[in-house]
């Protein structure tokens, strides 16, 4: 039972990070490799301010979300939109955006690296304190509960919004065919910047909650999560938010089982090997659809 609770917490951390990345990739076709850097820089910005002024948890989260949203929207406006306009077709644009994302990521990471001298940073000056609860032999912290509620709640909310709201349907239309969507009155540029702002805000939220949960973040944390998020999205099936949720908890479950067996050295090999096996049987991912590239 404790393993299940641990899986739920770890999966929620992964989910919060992957949601923004999956949203942008599955709707407007942006595989943003700067997502990890935005995640780190947002949390660092909140850390930087909270070092001067003691802040509550909601204030820290708000700062991190705003920084993430701004940085991500600016990345779309100043880097990805010009790439899209100058590319001959979507395939060449995808590759350029991927490389552009890596280039953009280097700037905030270099700033954090310079400011922290690669030392871990956290919210030591925050007024928030973690409490541990023991219920029927199970241990859980208040931060874990917040992470689980935020992760699952936002994932379900985002899935419903994409399926049922007018803006969500517009976004999914862009994912299927952006030209036809434009003809139907969907403003692709505005929707794309808005989507990237939401994705960046989610990265900021994930960054702040991860620091509260794990107490500290290193400058390399974003890169490590980026690879895992990529695997989760592909495992769940590109275009399916439900798939991302499943992918996050499958990866977290596999890791928790390996940790429980004290085989920590093999955690990446077994987890990613498992994903590889699933993709051999179902290349489009668990919830992916073969006939539609993105929805």
């Amino acid at each position: 039972m404790q393993e299940l609770l641990n899986t739920l917490t770890l999966g929620s951390i992964y989910l919060l990070f992957a949601l923004g990345m999956a949203l942008a990739w599955s709707t407007i076709g942006i595989l943003n490799f700067a997502h990890g850097a935005i995640f780190v820089f947002s949390a660092f910005s909140a850390h930087f301010i909270s070092d001067f002024v003691p802040l509550s948890m909601p204030a820290i989260i708000l700062i991190s979300v705003l920084v993430g949203a701004t940085l991500s929207a600016l990345t779309q406006w100043l880097a990805f939109e010009p790439i899209l306009k100058r590319s001959k077709n979507h395939r060449s644009a995808e590759l350029r955006i991927l490389i552009g994302g890596i280039g953009v990521a280097a700037i905030p990471i270099a700033l954090v690296d310079w400011a922290t001298a690669s030392a871990p940073f956290g919210f030591a000056n925050s007024s928030y304190s973690t409490q541990v609860y023991e219920i029927m032999g199970l241990r859980i912290t208040n931060t874990s509960l917040i992470v689980i509620i935020a992760g699952v709640g936002i994932a379900v909310g985002l899935t419903l919004w994409l399926r049922r709201s007018r803006q969500g349907l517009g976004l999914r239309a862009i994912g299927v065919d952006s030209e036809t969507a434009s003809l139907m009155g969907v403003n692709r540029t505005v929707m794309a910047i808005g989507t990237m702002a939401i994705a960046g805000g989610l990265a900021g939220l994930a960054g702040a909650l991860q620091v509260f949960q794990l107490q500290a973040m290193g400058v390399e944390t974003g890169d490590q999560l980026l690879i895992k998020a990529f695997a989760m999205i592909v495992l769940g099936g590109l275009g399916s938010m439900a798939g991302v949720i499943l992918g996050a908890f499958v990866l977290a479950g596999a890791e928790s089982l390996i940790f429980a067996a004290n085989m920590g050295t093999w955690v990446d090999a077994v987890s990613f090997g498992l994903i590889f096996l699933v993709l051999l049987v179902r290349p489009q991912g668990i919830f992916g659809r073969q006939e539609v590239r993105r929805t």
Partner: peptide, 13 residues
């Protein structure tokens, strides 16, 4: 207990 450089959450361990 061994872990990898990519391990960030140590709740189970």
């Amino acid at each position: 207990v061994p872990v990898q450089s990519t391990t960030q959450d140590f709740t189970a361990q």
